[in-house]
Amino acid sequence: MADQMTKAQLVAALAEETGSDKKSASAMLDALSGIVTRTVSGGGAVTLPGIGKIYCRERPERQVRNPATGEQMTKAADRTVKMTVAKALKDAINS
């Protein structure tokens, strides 16, 4: 498995690729994160070309089992973040 890229490494790579400084790259990354968070938490979806689509999915109320006690309980409806990976990224990984 490849090493995990940290935020500092991502900022440095982004700065190098765009020809800007690390401060600007960090601000762009923070702004992107904020935009995605606001949009998805509001029920929308964000498509990052070549990467994928991030969206919110509603999960209905359901029965779950406590693994420690085996007790059945009802879990309330909630929302979760999902991501569909773009075909271009899948193809790049599998080639």
Score class of each variant (00 low, 15 high):
residue 1 M to R: 01
residue 3 D to Q: 02
residue 3 D to W: 00
residue 4 Q to L: 01
residue 4 Q to R: 05
residue 5 M to D: 00
residue 6 T to G: 00
residue 6 T to E: 00
residue 6 T to L: 00
residue 8 A to F: 00
residue 8 A to C: 00
residue 9 Q to R: 00
residue 10 L to N: 05
residue 11 V to R: 06
residue 11 V to L: 06
residue 11 V to I: 15
residue 12 A to I: 02
residue 13 A to E: 09
residue 14 L to F: 13
residue 14 L to G: 08
residue 14 L to D: 06
residue 14 L to C: 10
residue 16 E to Q: 15
residue 16 E to C: 11
residue 17 E to I: 03
residue 17 E to F: 05
residue 18 T to E: 13
residue 19 G to Y: 11
residue 19 G to A: 11
residue 20 S to C: 15
residue 20 S to N: 14
residue 21 D to Y: 12
residue 21 D to M: 14
residue 22 K to H: 11
residue 22 K to Q: 14
residue 23 K to H: 05
residue 24 S to R: 13
residue 25 A to T: 13
residue 25 A to F: 13
residue 25 A to K: 08
residue 25 A to H: 13
residue 25 A to M: 12
residue 26 S to F: 05
residue 27 A to R: 11
residue 28 M to Q: 08
residue 29 L to F: 08
residue 30 D to S: 10
residue 33 S to T: 13
residue 33 S to E: 11
residue 33 S to P: 03
residue 33 S to Y: 03
residue 33 S to N: 09
residue 35 I to W: 05
residue 35 I to S: 06
residue 35 I to Y: 03
residue 35 I to M: 06
residue 37 T to H: 04
residue 37 T to F: 01
residue 39 T to E: 15
residue 40 V to Q: 12
residue 41 S to D: 06
residue 41 S to T: 14
residue 42 G to Y: 07
residue 42 G to M: 10
residue 42 G to Q: 09
residue 43 G to N: 10
residue 43 G to F: 12
residue 43 G to V: 13
residue 43 G to C: 10
residue 44 G to S: 12
residue 45 A to D: 08
residue 45 A to R: 12
residue 46 V to K: 09
residue 48 L to C: 07
residue 49 P to W: 09
residue 51 I to L: 15
residue 52 G to V: 02
residue 52 G to M: 04
residue 53 K to M: 06
residue 53 K to A: 02
residue 54 I to P: 03
residue 55 Y to S: 07
residue 55 Y to P: 00
residue 57 R to N: 08
residue 57 R to K: 10
residue 59 R to P: 06
residue 60 P to Q: 04
residue 60 P to E: 04
residue 61 E to D: 02
residue 61 E to Y: 04
residue 61 E to Q: 07
residue 62 R to T: 01
residue 63 Q to W: 01
residue 65 R to Q: 04
residue 65 R to M: 05
residue 66 N to G: 10
residue 69 T to D: 06
residue 71 E to Q: 06
residue 71 E to W: 02
residue 71 E to S: 06
residue 72 Q to L: 07
residue 72 Q to D: 07
residue 73 M to S: 08
residue 74 T to L: 10
residue 76 A to Q: 09
residue 76 A to V: 09
residue 76 A to G: 12
residue 78 D to T: 15
residue 78 D to K: 12
residue 78 D to M: 14
residue 80 T to W: 06
residue 80 T to F: 05
residue 81 V to E: 13
residue 81 V to R: 14
residue 82 K to L: 14
residue 82 K to H: 15
residue 83 M to T: 14
residue 85 V to Q: 12
residue 85 V to E: 08
residue 86 A to K: 13
residue 87 K to D: 15
residue 87 K to H: 14
residue 88 A to Q: 14
residue 88 A to G: 11
residue 92 A to T: 05
residue 93 I to P: 03
residue 94 N to S: 07
residue 95 S to M: 02
residue 95 S to Y: 03
residue 95 S to F: 01
